[in-house]
Amino acid sequence: MPRLELLAELKGHTDRVWSVTWSPTSNILASCGGDKTVRLWTPTTSELSQWTCTNVLEGAHTRTIRSVAWSPNGRHLATGSFDATAGIWARDENGEYECVATLEGHENETKAVSWSTSGTLLATCGRDKSVWIWEVGADNDFECISVQQEHTQDAKMVIWHPSEELLASASYDDTIKIWKEDEDDWYCSDTLEGHESTVWAIDFDKSGDYLVSASDDKTLKFWKRYSPDQVDGNIGKHRVDPKWKCMCTLSGHHQRCIYSVSWSKVHGLLASGSADNMIRVFERVSSSTITIPDNTTDIVSGTMNNFDNATISNNNDSNDDTLNYTVVASISSAHGVADVNCVQWHPSEIHDNLLASAGDDGIVRIWKYCKE
């Protein structure tokens, strides 16, 4: 049966690790945490069982670094910090990184940073409930072109569409908002409601027509984008903007808040990380009827995980659009007794079976997804 196999433990952070992200152009993993640093890790063996920290980025932030993101060309890193700023780091010809810009404007903690696919835009969000969009100029010049303040509570995460200049944000107000540009002005084109508590994480699938969200209500929700002329979208033709409809809700797979979700753009598997110390891997199945097992064996510890309360709720009447997901791999105590703060699939086809995770134990772990 499929399983997650632990390949490596990356130790070096002296506080909890909040986020990990893979370089889109090389086999480098970036991690950030409460020790105010970003660490860059590269493998030293072909088996990927040994990794070394090649760079430590520090000195630019005075408080926890909550989020880190690579630019699409892999030459820059953006960091979001509780000191209310975002940092831009550039790599020189010697492979060293320098903070070349500090973006100020948020009133307090910056919770997340994200680059658009084109690399021409950067989004940040924060505890001040706002979403900022920055235009990337020449010579490391960043200009704020829009500040959106429609969330009523903390904005926890921002993420760009994989191929369009379309932005999604998740919030403590239990909603997800979709942001679009219209004649140099950004606006909220849709608000996704349905979660009963904080939405901590969101991710698009490869096509960008689906969005998954993870929440403090212990559920994962799958949303589909409908064009204005589609009846199934339950919208009138007079509306210009596409609307997003919740197609499926997974519940009972985590016992506490789900902090992170990652949707592989290569093989389509979904990984989730939670405050219950669990990592789950989900796979979409074609059958409209799913039999959820009473329990499943944890590959690492051998313990049995009860699925008696796991449910799948489909919200669509069309069988063609039915979304069904089942757990194919599970790890309990993935970071000991510590929360799992982040999970991220590797973006390349060569290493698409690699999953990185970050936890409150201050350790980064590299997992290999084995199909058999």
Rank of each mutant, 00 (worst) to 15 (best):
A8G: 09
V17D: 14
W18Q: 14
S19R: 14
S23W: 10
P24F: 11
S31I: 08
S31H: 10
C32M: 08
G33T: 11
T37P: 02
L40W: 03
L48K: 13
L48C: 07
S49C: 10
Q50I: 10
W51D: 13
L57K: 00
T62F: 00
I65M: 03
V68F: 04
A69E: 09
G74K: 02
R75L: 11
L77E: 12
A86N: 02
W89T: 09
R91Q: 14
C99M: 06
T102F: 00
L103N: 07
E104T: 12
E107K: 12
N108L: 06
V113E: 12
S114M: 08
S116E: 10
C125S: 13
G126W: 06
G126T: 08
S130E: 11
W132Q: 08
G137R: 01
N140G: 07
N140Q: 06
N140W: 12
D141A: 07
C144E: 13
C144W: 00
E150V: 00
M157A: 15
V158T: 13
P162R: 05
S163D: 08
L167P: 05
A170L: 04
D174F: 15
K177F: 01
D182S: 15
D185S: 14
W186D: 10
C188E: 12
S189D: 03
T191M: 07
G194H: 02
V199E: 03
W200S: 07
A201P: 02
I202K: 01
S207C: 05
G208M: 11
L220V: 13
F222T: 10
W223H: 05
Y226H: 15
V231R: 09
G233M: 04
N234G: 08
I235V: 14
I235L: 13
K243H: 02
C246P: 04
M247A: 02
S251C: 00
H253Q: 08
S262E: 12
S262F: 08
S264D: 09
V266M: 01
G268L: 02
A271P: 04
N277P: 00
V281I: 15
V285I: 15
S286C: 02
S286Q: 14
S287V: 05
S287T: 15
T296Y: 09
G302I: 06
N309D: 15
A310I: 05
T311F: 05
S313A: 14
N316Q: 07
N316M: 05
S318C: 10
N319C: 05
N324M: 08
Y325Q: 03
V328S: 11
I331H: 06
H335I: 12
G336N: 07
V337M: 13
W345K: 01
H346V: 00
E349M: 03
H351F: 14
H351M: 03
D352L: 00
N353G: 05
A356K: 04
S357P: 11
A358K: 08
V364G: 09
I366R: 04
